[in-house]
Write a protein that binds this DNA or RNA. Structure first.
Length: 478
RNA sequence: CGAGAUGUAGCGCAGUUUGGUAGCGCGCUUCGUUCGGGACGAAGAGGCCGCAGGUUCGAUUCCUGUCAUCUCGACCA
């Protein structure tokens, strides 16, 4: 029996985190590989998670006045090259199109690696007066970046995302927008994905190509590596100038507007896996779980069991996403299956329960198993789902706190990571790029962000010892 | 993109050293017995051994190339 179980089990998380991750994406049926490197099929169960993410976020965007649009997938080289920093930032990973198998020499087309240039071209066409501003646009599409190394969800060559592109009359308004969207991302991650994030600003060397400043949310995965979960950029009027976007203001003067862009990707699914998953498989936050509760009949061949299960499913389906598995697999098989798939709640219903007017409810996050009366079960189940969400957030936060270290020298960073494993390192920085590089060279951690919250832990730079300007989060990143 | 490893049935693997057209476990199909933590028995089905060249009478096995996957670096959401 023990032998058999071993055959089916996934790699232990603490033994080999990377293998554990790929085991989960395959065994929970989130993705399947294709014959093209870095391009994956997102299977129904994986895509349903993305649809839930999409639905919630889209609601948040709409509630703050944004509208969805859809830009073309192709960008002519001449357009891509209009903003110098931007094109330089993306050039190495742009995929070019050949027409009918022939190389195109003049103004060839690429597949969008991001759509700033397309939005800019469009804005230049439709914006004339201050009355045309702001435009708060977003699109849900896929983009292509020809990455060298790829990993499902974390780094694929084509990935799904949303990209918001807004344009404003004033700098202050654009900055407010950048901050607002970062807040929305952070709220979304913490409330709906139960994933704590650090809000902050990227250093100069790490910011988006063409941006004045890049804000980000950084999350810490269970193995102590950092993952950028979302970004929000303030562009100033640099793009507007490069693309000749102007409007006439109230004083009848021609001026450039200010822009932002912000995005999250299917990488969030990778973040969910690596934040919450355990040795039994995926653990999904209730808000985005395709199935929030699964009903498993016990001794389903016995009279009345399936009928009782169906009645329960019917009742719960009015409130939550519920599935009844009446397949003829054994109950034990189903338990393991839905644990692998990360279903937040399992409801067992068998002859004994029916007799007692109850069911057994089991929480995926901690394995807690309790009997609850069938009367009023809808409320109890909703209660348990929100409890599961809180527990997941608390667990993830505990892991992050445990793996957040404060260091005062590069030697201390090296020693600390050796003793405790990877994690966030909080250390002061003078603001000099040379020090940023030197820390990476010496210790292996790179700068993640300058956090909005958090007090100075020292007065001197962790690297050069000169006066420190910023507290910085450092870490090894995905 | 540099270093390394791996591609054999849906999944996990053996076989390759020493060349002769493929095997195991799980899963799958059918029937029966089961069903409160991945049940059991019987009978079946399933393979251009990643792909393309080469060597050979003959290649899953040897050689070359290529594609994909994984790991570690450099780069990046």
């Amino acid at each position: 029996m023990a032998e058999k179980k071993k055959v089916e089990a996934i790699t232990s998380r603490d033994e080999d985190f990377a293998k554990w991750y790929t085991d989960i994406v395959k065994k929970a049926e989130l993705i399947e590989y294709t014959s093209v490197k870095g391009c994956m099929v997102i299977r129904p169960y994986g895509y349903a998670i993305w649809e839930n993410i999409q639905r919630i976020l889209d609601g948040m965007f709409k509630a703050t006045g944004h509208e969805n649009v859809c830009m073309p997938m192709f960008i002519p080289e001449s357009l891509l090259q209009k903003e110098k920093d931007h094109v330089e930032g993306f050039a190495p990973e742009v995929a070019w199109v050949t027409m009918g198998g022939k190389e195109v020499l003049e103004d060839r087309l690429c597949v969008r690696p991001t759509s700033e240039t397309l939005f800019c071209e469009h804005y230049a066409n439709i914006i004339h007066s201050y009355r045309d501003l702001p435009k708060l646009y977003n699109q849900w599409v896929s983009v292509v970046r020809w990455e060298k190394t790829t990993r499902p969800f974390l780094r694929s060559r084509e990935f799904l995302w949303q990209e918001g592109h807004t344009i404003h009359a004033t700098e202050a308004e654009a900055i407010r927008e950048t901050e607002q969207m970062l807040d929305i991302y952070a709220d979304f991650c913490e409330k709906y994905l139960a994933m704590p994030v650090v809000k902050g600003k990227k250093t100069e060397s790490d910011k988006f190509a063409g941006a004045v400043s890049t804000y980000c949310i950084e999350a810490l995965m269970h193995d102590g590596k950092a993952l950028q979960a979302g970004t929000s950029h303030f562009f100033g009027d640099g793009f507007a100038k490069a693309f000749d976007i102007t409007y006439t203001d109230r004083e009848n003067k021609k001026v450039n507007p200010f822009q932002t862009s912000w995005g999250v990707t299917t990488r969030l699914i990778g973040a969910i896996i690596m934040t919450h998953g355990d040795d039994n498989g995926l653990v999904l936050p209730p808000a985005v779980a395709p199935v929030q509760a699964v009903i498993i009949p016990v001794a389903q061949h016995k009279e009345g069991v399936l009928e009782a299960c169906e009645a329960l499913r019917e009742k719960l389906s009015k409130r939550i996403r519920v599935k009844l598995d009446d397949s003829d697999n054994s109950a034990g098989w189903k338990f393991a299956e839905y644990e692998m798939k990360g279903v937040p709640l399992r409801i067992e219903l068998g002859p004994r329960d029916i007799e007692n007017g109850q069911c057994v409810v089991c929480l995926r996050v901690n394995g807690e198993k309790i009997s609850l009366p069938l009367k009023g079960i809808e409320d109890a189940v909703e209660q348990k789902l929100s409890e599961a969400n809180e527990l997941m957030f608390a667990k993830a936060l505990e892991n992050r706190e445990k793996k957040t270290y404060t260091c005062h020298s590069t030697d201390e960073i090296i020693k600390c990571l050796e003793e405790n494993g990877d994690g966030f390192v909080k250390a002061m920085w003078c603001g000099d790029e040379a020090c940023e590089d030197a820390v990476k060279e010496k210790t292996g951690v790179c700068s993640r962000c300058i956090p909005f919250e958090g007090e100075a832990v020292d007065t001197k730079c962790v690297c050069c010892g000169k006066e420190a300007k910023h507290l910085l989060y450092w870490g090894k990143a995905y």
